[in-house]
Design a protein around this nucleic acid. Structure first.
Lengths: 361, 361
DNA sequence: CTGTTAGCGCCTTCAT
DNA sequence: ATGAAGGCGCTAACAG
């Protein structure tokens, strides 16, 4: 672990605040106060400093600032699977919002492992990130988040958090509830639910919503119809296959995400069953595949950009409340207390993949 | 822009190298040399320092290290669209490889704008990233990359670079060439090519490959069949619609990416044309949609993980060559000169979307 | 082989 | 209102 400054090749020497001070004919301290407006400075000095800074194209060194202040202007984002299109879109939105405020974003992939999550959180903390956005990972650990939030702004994404925390939650309960009721209204009673992982909030909520819809209609739930695989496509494929080959197979499927949808579609293909004639299908989480498949697949949708934007904003609120801002935002602090939780709603996008169940012979 | 250390709430005071030195009963310099193996240290001292470090759970402060050494252990990754599934998978691979070596990754979205790219590069440089990975963006600027690479390791992704640079390239020429020839062999002669942007290397290469295949078979190219829209789905939709409504419509389409494929599929739906009976289809860039669509869509595929891994490795090679390594890797420097360019090949995955052209009446 | 010293660039008391 | 000085944590020269 040798860390040596590269041979200082031909790069022009950095212009420091010293140079600015010298050029402006003031002392280093005055230059700093002028640049940061962090203390009394005469009008004349201020002008001189600003002029000099502009002339020299001075930009403060974020590393030095970090060492001195303990803040970094960087926020960390950890999700279980960076390649998941749903996360990819959230990340984009977070990045946009953060970038506007002058923050940089470091990302990490936990591969759905708590150990990795711990490791990366620790790494990010060492690097003095000003805040953290954490997606669901392996199992809920509200205590862990609680602990973390005691000395670092943390925003949970679809994940339970302790009292001190903040988060943005999608109403998956409602999504599953309405999807199920929609199928019930069509006449289905044997509805299979293939979701990710019941240990995680989204999975839990979805199962709860599904059960509630069933019980409200007086349909007794058949637990063999609920499969919480680990989101792997091949698993959902075999799950679906097994379900479809049973004698009293389900007449409808609710699948979480395009991954699982993929597995189910493959299983359909293999068994020769058709959508929606033989089986109705709803996909939770919209995307290219459900939209363009023939027949187009009815989906439970929510605003992914809003999730990302909200997460970034809640986080920045929390940071502003307990730390500093890296770039001079426009307005002064407006809201005295920033929101600590944001709930986003879901809605069912009806397309062509659902029909009344065929009369079984 | 006030940057103040947060009120030092209840977090335990950081343990510094000073504490380690004190605990080990040696001086600060010796502790540093021992920890970094960067100078002569007696066996006894080394042991003592390591024991103390472990006992105190000492971890060096990356910020302080950065300030001192000019390196950061962070690499920046800039692409035109973080939400693009292709990039998302590349990013995942890059992150994995980087993480193993102790690097962190900051990402940025250029939204395909050179201005934004300039801005973010500048920001990343200020933050002292040890290297940069840059995807295609708006227009090629080999001179820009060349300039950049003079004082910072840069790896170009599917993008031309100057002499000093490094890059990983996918052989899109070959992909388009083979896709086109496959269709020609099936009997097609009117083949439409819908690609992203001819100003960028992938687009250029694809068009060239397409033309070459045509000319090799003595088929004269009809330039009205080549559309280089801006990758927007609605554009490719109307392009496809126009193409399909023409009297001598193409009998086959090669579409770049699932976005454009989406547009074409919608157009097909609207015109009532069927795949592959009326029109054959090849998608460049594989994914859920082509795999699972009915009929499954023949695609030009390449190894996205390999792209990311290669990019990370080339970059780390370049960094090692001109800088330092953030974490003590296992082996000593092996190859004296790291590879500066990696080419990855493409292959056609034949599925069900192509057939001989129907005899026109 | 070891201890001491001098900064990296910046912000912030503390005296003027 | 300003200048001087201390120090964030670390590494790399320099004496011993």
């Amino acid at each position: 672990m040798s860390r040596t400054r590269p041979p200082a090749s031909d790069t022009p020497p950095r212009v420091t605040i010293r140079d600015v001070a010298r050029a402006a004919g003031v002392s280093l301290g005055t230059a700093s106060r002028a640049l940061n407006r962090s203390g009394p400075v005469s009008e004349a000095a201020l002008q001189a400093v600003e002029r000099a800074a502009r002339a020299l194209a001075y930009a403060p060194d974020p590393i030095a600032q970090s060492l001195r202040t303990g803040t970094s202007g960087v926020v960390g984002l950890l999700v279980s699977d960076l390649a998941n299109p749903l996360y990819a879109r959230i990340i984009t939105a977070v990045e946009s919002r953060l970038q506007r405020e002058g923050y940089a974003m470091v990302v990490g992939n936990t591969h759905n492992s708590n150990a990795r999550e711990d490791m990366m959180v620790e790494l990010f903390r060492r690097r003095r990130v000003d805040g953290l956005i954490l997606g669901p990972c392996e199992v809920e650990r509200p205590d862990f988040l609680h602990q973390l939030a005691r000395d670092l702004p943390v925003v949970a994404l679809d994940r339970d958090f302790g009292e001190d925390g903040a988060g943005v939650h999608v109403d998956h309960f409602r999504g599953a509830f309405e999807a199920t009721r929609y199928l019930l209204d069509l006449g289905h009673t044997r509805i299979a639910l293939l979701t990710s992982d019941s240990a995680l909030r989204p999975g839990r909520e979805r199962i709860a919503g599904y059960r509630r819809a069933l019980s409200e209609r007086g349909v007794t739930a058949d637990d063999t119809l609920v499969r919480a695989s680990r989101s792997a496509m091949d698993l959902s494929f075999s799950d679906a296959l097994a379900l479809l080959s049973a004698k009293d197979r389900p007449t409808a499927f609710i699948c979480l995400g395009t991954r699982i949808l993929s597995g189910v579609l493959q299983a359909m293909k293999q068994t020769g069953l058709r959508v929606p004639r033989d089986v109705s299908l709803i996909c939770v989480g919209d995307g290219d595949l459900p939209q363009l498949y023939s027949p187009a697949i009815t989906a439970v949708n929510w605003d992914l950009e809003a999730v990302g934007t909200a997460a970034a904003e809640v986080l920045m609120g929390a940071i502003g409340g307990s730390g500093a801002t890296p770039t001079a935002g426009g307005a002064a602090d407006s809201a005295p207390s920033a929101p600590r939780e944001i709930r986003l709603t879901t809605h069912v996008v009806v397309r062509e993949s659902c029909a009344p169940p065929a009369a079984r012979i």
